[in-house]
Amino acid sequence: MKFEIQSITAQETLPLRQKALWPGHLIEQSMVDGDETALHFGGYLDRKLVCVASLFHEPPGIRLRKFATDPAFQGQGFGSQMLRQLLHEAQATGAKTFWFDARESALPFYQRNGYTPDGERFFKADIPYRRIVRALT
């Protein structure tokens, strides 16, 4: 099986965002401000979209948002491959930092990939999050 990462449209991210991050919500609720100008990536396993992520320019950094892997394909390394590619993409923009808000439930994944939380816990829609920031310079 071959896993490939490529640029996709914001619209192409929505079904997987909804399935993995907000099941039970309307697909429109998976859209975020700035989607129209963000960089969107899809990870395909034998032409099936199994992972999506979006990068938003928020000077002086690049912000990762809506990073989702199909639950049926989690734990197989696809998210880690995507995360490495996203870091490379962020570095290529010349941004000074790469940052994102991670659900606390996903912290073990990010820590296995070399990321550590920065700051205190906060909540979005009753879900606990931690900010992660990585210098790119």
Rank of each mutant, 00 (worst) to 15 (best):
T93I: 10
K124Y: 12
L55I: 01
H57F: 13
G79R: 05
K96F: 11
E104I: 14
M82D: 05
P108F: 01
D46A: 06
G79M: 03
L55R: 02
G61C: 05
S80A: 14
A72C: 11
I132F: 05
E104V: 13
F100N: 04
Y129Q: 00
R134P: 01
L87R: 12
F109Y: 06
W99F: 13
L83R: 02
G114H: 10
A125G: 11
F122A: 07
H40D: 03
R112W: 07
R112Q: 13
V50L: 00
N113K: 06
F56T: 04
Q111C: 06
D70W: 07
G114F: 06
Y129C: 00
T97P: 12
I127W: 06
L87M: 12
A95Q: 05
A38R: 09
G75E: 00
A102Y: 08
E104Q: 14
Q111R: 15
Q74Y: 04
G42Y: 02
H88A: 14
R134V: 15
L87C: 05
F56M: 09
V52N: 00
P128S: 04
G43Q: 00
P59M: 13
A90G: 03
M82E: 01
M82T: 04
V50C: 00
A68C: 00
S54M: 05
F56A: 02
A125P: 09
G114D: 08
R103L: 10
F100P: 11
Q91D: 12
K66V: 05
C51H: 11
R103M: 08
Q85W: 09
